[in-house]
Design a protein around this nucleic acid. Structure first.
Lengths: 188, 188
DNA sequence: CCTCATTTTAATACCTAGTCCTAAGTGCTA
DNA sequence: TAGCACTTAGGACTAGGTATTAAAATGAGG
């Protein structure tokens, strides 16, 4: 039997969400109704025509602002004992999370820890070599992340830094960073 | 004076690249020529009409909507086989480097690789669990980083992704990411 | 079974942003 | 002045619609 209007409209929404490239004609055939019926449905559901749907998608794509805060350090360093330990604070904002689920993107937590690890080294040029990290639990929008960094081993031109990031005493991120010194010979 | 054909066509390519949403009529006015001239130009340059341009953009984007919203990727994903492999391109700009030495910050390379690894997962909500990474050599301002990601192991709700980032065939970054799926129970 | 509202289909005019084609005009130059 | 490249104009046609009006078909209640 044919679907009822409600059912059809519900399936229509779904179908167009799943594949916005369908023309009215195509869905009309799918549902065995006339084009006009589909158009009435779209009208009632407030779904724009194919071309508008496509355009909106393209526009969204177009304004992809390649974010990730520029030169700023990610997080605010609030305490620092060079070659010993440091603390950095970061409140997760809109610019740090996935739109869809408001969970902080991994590289944001990484960036906070990494920045802090590098800040610990009292060298003109310090870079990260290896790192091993663990995202213990997802961090939500609005949560305040406090990263605690401790130097585990210190060599002449290498530093092993352990970082634990917590939200209210709960560990959310853990990482071990190997930071090394680059002789500032302008060569690199 | 009016531009020559060559000049006009060159500007036309540029203009449409910069803003693909321009109609023939709009550019015709801009260049003070007739619509037909613009259409001939497009024909000669092999530039498709507005609607096709927009459609292609939307399609490209649609390929990878599952796990990603536009501005969530660092770098430009130029190839992607879900659950298999992917390639992402990132040119290191001023906003990515340390002021002092113009070396890319570690978390930028991490972000590129991490984004790509997550993009590989065809899941609504995908997050990074563990990661082990190595910054092989510093990357300078202006260098183009190409990240190659390959799924090493795929489970029902976990993916092991290996990422190698190269600058002109030279490996600069290496990482192993464990990406996991989060059941989308709205509770998360 | 008839009636009435809802739902569906049809028909028409119009729109945008084009394609494709033919024809005519312009400007330079050999 | 003829030839050529370039430009413009016009008409016919296209997809994928909007907007409007009107006529059927259908289902439910009395």
């Amino acid at each position: 039997m044919r679907l009822t209007k409600k059912e059809r409209q519900s399936y229509l929404s779904q179908a167009l969400e799943q594949n916005p490239f369908l023309t009215d004609e195509e869905v009309a055939k799918k549902f065995h109704v006339s084009i006009q019926t589909i158009r009435l449905d779209r009208l009632e559901l407030g779904i724009p025509e194919l071309r508008e749907r496509i355009k909106h998608m393209a526009e969204k794509k177009f304004d992809r602002v390649q974010s990730l805060s520029p030169n700023e350090v990610i997080g605010e360093v609030i305490d620092l004992q060079l070659h010993k330990n440091g603390i950095s604070l970061l409140e997760i904002g809109f610019e740090h999370v996935f739109e869809r689920n408001q969970i902080a993107r991994g590289h944001i937590l990484f960036a906070q820890a990494n920045s802090l690890a590098i800040a610990l080294a009292d060298w003109k040029v310090a870079l990260t070599g290896n790192a091993s990290i663990r995202f213990v639990r997802p961090v939500q929008l609005g949560e305040k992340c406090i990263a605690f960094a401790n130097v585990a081993e210190a060599y002449d031109s290498r530093l092993h830094v352990g970082v634990q990031t917590k939200v209210q005493e709960e560990i959310v991120f853990q990482g071990d960073f190997e930071v090394y010194r680059v002789s500032d010979d302008r060569g690199n």
